[in-house]
């Protein structure tokens, strides 16, 4: 059984468009337009796309916050409309890393409150909240009022909140947005740890480096439609994106080669090329250099980034 499966999901919004002070008309925004996807259990699944592509709507439909106009979706084997309460029991949710808490309650009190919402007794809820404060690295900061928290601490508390019910599946909508590098790294490590424990993570993010490093599967959504699905490497391969290869030659001057040669950072000649067949071309260049009797100082292969994948997919 898949962790998440949806078919033909549609969610349209009717929005008012102002035409001057008194006049307005309505237009329809297709937030989700016939979306079908499947997410395996225990993976980190990322949904990426430009602003307004439908990522947050997708998370809200799957987390039962919104009822879709058409189509069906199952989370953990339960229908998000007909068995919404079952779905709510097995999911955790982070919609905005700095929101959703009582400012005048401490981190611990906020977590206990959420534990009670999930039906935990006060004792269970307190014990679980303390565990999660330790897990997220908040520890003693759990005794401080939420209003005193930094953005990074708030993000950690959001993740802790999402785990209060020991969910099978967690939805994280841009979990590291606005965080400093250290806090973002801590959150990413937490996400990896969750997946390592068998939890399914469904996340959205604009940080392509993050998505690439965390995700098993990436889905690109544009104007409410899925336009590409695959692992980061599959997507790169499918789009035949170019690799950049640099080979440093230990020589006093640039040898005469078939590839362009420039002087590198260390003062040695460097062969640079862009290719879709990195393995073959690298072996060919190394053979050519060795054939000329030179030593190789350094080899650098730069993969195409997921950002390039996204740029190419979205510009179609």
């Amino acid at each position: 059984m898949k962790a998440i499966a949806c078919e033909g999901l549609r969610k349209h919004y009717r929005v008012k468009v102002r035409r001057g002070f008194f006049n307005h008309e309505y237009s329809v925004i297709k937030a989700l337009d016939d979306v079908s996807l499947e997410v395996e259990r225990g993976v980190i699944f990322s949904l990426v796309g430009p602003n307004g592509a439908g990522k947050t709507t997708m998370v809200k439909v799957l987390s039962t916050l919104l009822i879709p106009d058409a189509g069906r979706a199952e989370v953990g084997g339960y229908d998000v409309v007909r068995q919404a309460n079952r779905v709510r029991e097995i999911i955790g949710l982070v919609l905005a890393p700095d929101k959703g808490f009582y400012a005048r309650l401490t981190g611990l009190e906020n977590l206990i409150y959420y534990g009670r919402l999930y039906g935990l007794s006060k004792e269970e809820s307190t014990r679980r909240a303390k565990e999660l404060l330790d897990l997220t690295g908040l520890g003693e900061d759990g005794m401080r009022l939420f209003e005193e928290y930094s953005l990074g601490m708030r993000a950690k508390l959001s993740i802790a909140k999402a785990l209060i019910n020991k969910p099978e599946i967690v939805f994280l909508d841009e979990p590291t947005i606005g965080l400093d590098p250290l806090s973002a790294r801590r959150i990413r490590q937490l996400i990896k740890d969750l997946a390592a424990k068998g939890m399914t993570v469904f996340m959205t993010s604009h940080n392509m480096w993050e998505v690439e490093n965390l995700s098993n599967t990436v889905t690109v959504i544009k104007s409410g439609r899925i336009v590409a699905v695959g692992s980061p490497s599959e997507l790169k391969e499918r789009l035949k994106l170019s690799y950049r290869i640099e080979v440093e030659i230990i020589a006093d001057k640039a040898p005469d080669m078939n590839q362009p040669v420039s002087i590198g950072e260390r003062g040695y000649p460097v062969v640079t090329m862009t290719t879709n067949k990195p393995s073959e071309d690298l072996v060919r260049v190394i053979d050519e250099i060795r054939g000329m009797g030179y030593l190789i100082g350094m080899v650098r292969v730069q993969e195409p980034s997921l950002e390039e994948v996204l740029t190419q997919v979205l510009s179609r």
């Binding site: 039962t64 916050l65 905005a96 808490f101 919402l117 999930y118 909140k161």
Partner: peptide, 18 residues
């Protein structure tokens, strides 16, 4: 405004109870 309502609605609790 605080985003708390969405979390309540995504939890297994009747909004009426809340």
């Amino acid at each position: 405004m605080t985003g708390r309502l969405e979390y309540i609605l995504a939890a297994p609790i009747s909004p009426l109870t809340a």
